[in-house]
Amino acid sequence: MSKPKLVVTRELPEEAMHLLKEEADLYVWESESESIPRSVLLQEVQQATGIVTNVADSIDREVLDAAPHLRVVSTMAVGFDNIDVNTATQRGIAIGHTPGILTETTADLTFALLMATARRVVDGDRFVRNGEWKSWGPMLLTGQDIYGATIGIIGMGRIGEAVARRAAGFAMKLLYHNRSRRPEVEQKLGAEYRSLDELLAESDYVVLMAPGSPDTYRMIGAREISLMKRSAVFINTSRGTNVDEQALYQALKEKRIWAAGLDVFEQEPIRTDHPLLSLDNVVVLPHIGSASIATRTRMAVIAAKNALAGIRGERLLHTVNPEVYEA
Rank of each mutant, 00 (worst) to 15 (best):
T49V: 04
T150A: 09
W258M: 09
M1V: 13
A171K: 15
G221Q: 11
I235F: 08
F111L: 06
L141Y: 07
A107R: 04
M115L: 15
A259T: 07
L141C: 07
N54M: 14
R91K: 15
L276F: 04
V163M: 05
S74A: 14
V122R: 10
G289N: 09
V85H: 07
D244W: 11
L12K: 11
L277C: 05
G240Q: 04
Q246C: 01
G137N: 08
G124Q: 07
A118H: 07
R296M: 15
S39F: 06
M172P: 03
G152S: 08
A210Q: 04
T103E: 08
P211C: 06
A300S: 15
A201T: 15
A168N: 10
F170A: 05
P183A: 04
R120K: 15
D273S: 11
G148P: 07
V78C: 00
E14N: 14
M1R: 11
R223V: 12
Q250N: 14
V324K: 06
L114M: 15
L316Q: 06
K5A: 05
I288C: 08
T237M: 13
E326S: 12
A16K: 09
Y249S: 04
L140W: 08
S290N: 11
L262G: 03
L174V: 07
S213P: 03
T106Q: 05
I151W: 01
P37D: 10
R271A: 15
I154P: 01
E22A: 14
E32T: 09
K253N: 12
A191P: 00
P214C: 10
L19M: 12
T241D: 07
A232F: 08
H177V: 01
K253E: 13
G313R: 05
R296P: 03
T297N: 10
R315S: 12
Y176K: 05
L248C: 06
P99N: 14
T117I: 09
S195C: 07
Y27S: 02
F111H: 02
L141H: 13
Q90W: 00
I225S: 03
I151E: 00
A164M: 11
W133E: 02
R182A: 02
S195E: 13
R223A: 13
D60F: 09
S238F: 10
F265L: 00
E32F: 12
Q47G: 10
S292N: 08
I235Q: 04
E198C: 01
D25K: 12
A247T: 11
Q47F: 01
F111T: 07
L6W: 09
P286K: 14
G155W: 10
L189P: 00
F127G: 00
A162E: 02
K21I: 02
L20V: 11
I159R: 04
N306V: 05
A309C: 11
P4V: 13
M299R: 03
R271G: 06
A168D: 01
G148D: 06
E132A: 14
V233P: 01
G79A: 05
T319R: 08
V8C: 03
